[in-house]
Write a protein that binds this DNA or RNA. Structure first.
Length: 435
RNA sequence: GCCCCGGUGGUCUAGUGGUCUAUGAUCUCGGUCUGUCGAGCCGAGUGCUCGGGUUCGAAUCCCGACCGGGGCGCCA
């Protein structure tokens, strides 16, 4: 007999013989009767045994160690006193995997635990439904992104995560040995997805890990994160794909709102659906908005954390959790960005801000070979080291653009999680490499 | 990497020089209890991050290391 899920059983199954398996979450021995709360993926159910009616089963249940995995076969009885309105009186109980005691981290203990302790014991931590709910929401967000892009003619691709050269400079790369040569862990699929724009595979997206050896130590940085990158060609201007990005994010949040109700309830979260179009705020206008709030930045400066938060509050007050910051200064953007024809200090680039945090950044790329090489030299990069990349621009490269978006941050912000690590199963940071 | 704060049983916490044979909870074990669902009641068990130093005496003060929390920088 296959093991039944708590979801498929009901009081209507009264009198039926069932087989169930799960974790023994709690054992309540009242002397003459014992109750065991059995936890499964989709919920909990109750096993019960009376000492007078079945002494061996009573002893078997009463003697269980919490969090052991057990299987029980018995008769389902409808009972309004029991959770779900029914319970199982076993005739057979088998311990499939005995848990050690004490637990390194209680699943239903009445005391909390620090995030660090929880991550050290992530398996135990993830036994809590509210922790797993985060990853169901994450799954829904990613599903919403995939679904939207497929509907708009995109192809999902994967590009190398081991590379012989860095993508953009600036961010630090993890170095590794590659049969005696130096190799790097990919910090971004940027160069590869751009190269694809010269192939006809020119509406692509990728969901893959990115690695940054930056010694960042904050609630929104990790060294390995899931990057959602997309690139589109041919385009006339940035607006051609900003529409796609906002549609994508809206669809992802809609997907969570539509299919993730139980998870959102468990997490006491209720993410707002953005109203489209998401506002485009030019950098210069952002400086003005900040000045009104008493936060003065010099023209050309990148927004610091405080400015980002203040701007986030200003826009939230206008009803916008999400907004695009467009027309960034060229100087604080990577070499591959396209600069404005009539004002080279300003670039065709953007950041997507969500609740005071940078969610995505992107822009139109420089597709003209000579200008691209000139910009590379301008930021101190050696074009010869990027020959594999530049070659794609010499034989017909359409105008293109795209973005990179941090999935972990998206999950964090959608659910208002205090730390990005909550949104990652086994996060990697400056100090954590295990588990 | 920088600034501030911290590290006490498996877990979470009280304790700022002697009154600490270290508080409480949770947990574990034993007992009790025939409807629990944060089960109750009784009893027991488990601990001052590591290394140096100050002092008659250190969980408590000082130095270092490691680790953690918050913030900044950097970015997704």
């Amino acid at each position: 007999m296959a093991y039944a899920s708590v979801r498929t059983l009901s009081p209507a199954d009264d009198g039926k013989e069932v087989s169930v398996a799960g974790w023994a979450e709690d054992i309540r021995n009242l002397g003459g009767i014992v109750f065991v709360i059995l936890r499964q993926r989709e919920g909990t159910l109750q096993l019960a045994a009376r000492k007078k009616e079945n002494p061996p089963i009573f002893e078997a249940l009463a003697g269980l160690v919490r969090e052991s995995v057990i299987a029980a076969k018995g008769v389902l009885k409808a009972n309004p006193q029991a959770r779900n309105g029914w319970e199982v009186f076993p005739t057979q109980v088998e311990v499939l995997s005995r848990a050690e005691a004490p637990l390194p981290l209680g699943v239903v203990d009445k005391v909390g635990a620090d995030l660090d302790t929880r991550l050290d014991n992530r398996v135990m931590d993830l036994r809590k439904p509210e922790r797993r709910a985060i990853f169901h929401v994450r799954d829904l967000l990613i599903g919403g992104i995939r679904e939207y892009l497929h509907r708009h003619g995109f192809v999902e691709v994967t590009t190398p995560k081991l590379a012989g050269a860095g993508a953009e400079g600036g961010a630090t790369l993890f170095r590794t040995d590659y049969f005696g040569k130096v190799a790097f862990l990919s910090q971004s699929p940027q160069l590869y997805k751009q190269m694809l724009m010269a192939t006809g595979l020119d509406r692509v997206f990728e969901l893959s890990p990115a690695f940054r050896a930056e010694p960042s130590d904050t609630v929104r940085h990790v060294t390995e994160f899931l990057s959602f990158d997309a690139e589109v060609a041919p385009i006339r201007h940035q607006e051609d794909f900003l529409k796609i990005l906002e549609g994508c994010v809206a669809n992802a949040i809609a997907s969570v709102r539509e299919h993730g109700k139980p998870y959102l309830d468990l997490l006491a979260a209720d993410p707002k659906a953005p109203s489209l179009p998401i506002p485009r705020v030019p950098y210069s206008e952002a400086l003005d908005l900040l000045a009104v709030e008493g936060k003065n930045l010099r023209d050309g400066d990148d927004l610091d954390t405080e400015a980002e938060k203040v701007l986030g509050r200003v826009m939230a007050a206008k009803g916008h959790d999400l907004f695009f910051l467009v027309e960034y200064p060229s100087a604080i953007k990577p070499f591959y960005v396209m600069v404005k024809e009539d004002d080279p200090d300003v670039s065709y680039s953007f950041d997507l801000e969500y609740k005071g945090d940078e969610m995505a950044s992107g822009g139109q790329r420089e597709h003209r070979y000579d200008r691209l090489v000139a910009r590379m030299k301008g930021v101190g990069l050696n074009p010869e080291a990027f020959e594999f990349y530049l070659r794609a621009f010499r034989y017909g490269m359409p105008p293109h653009g795209g973005w990179g978006l941090g999935i972990d941050r998206l999950v964090q912000k959608v659910l208002d999680l205090p730390n990005i690590r909550e949104a990652i199963l086994f996060p990697r940071d400056r100090n954590r490499l295990v588990p």
